[in-house]
Design a protein around this nucleic acid. Structure first.
Length: 89
DNA sequence: ATCATGACTAATG
DNA sequence: CCATTAGCCATGA
């Protein structure tokens, strides 16, 4: 595991329930505003889906990006979390 | 050191 | 809205 990857994962862990952030946002968070592409690589390499909410990371245009376990699952998870959030509030 | 590879982005036609 | 283009960067071979 490289330092860069750790930083990325840490940043992703901070994304709150029901919210989504862009790859660019993560890149800036780790101090490398232009490494959004590398960020995508890191997420792809570390499918710790149970602990790292990588499904909350989408494209900058709010468009659903990719997902190692299938983009449909990704959107499902996003909607699910949204419901959970509303339910709790 | 060099090269190819993306879950990308922004700009342009 | 869709296609193309150039820029960008960590990572592995």
């Amino acid at each position: 595991m490289t330092e860069f990857e750790k930083k990325v994962l840490k940043a992703v862990l901070k994304i709150p329930l029901g919210k989504i952030k862009s790859y660019k946002w993560v890149a800036e968070k780790v101090g490398r505003p232009k490494a959004y592409r590398a960020v995508a690589n890191a997420l792809k390499k570390n499918p710790y889906c149970l602990f790292i909410p990588c499904h909350r990371v989408v494209k900058s245009s709010q468009q659903l990006g990719g997902y190692s376990l299938g983009s449909e699952l990704k959107s499902d998870l996003i909607n699910l979390e949204k419901k959970i959030k509303d339910m709790i509030e």
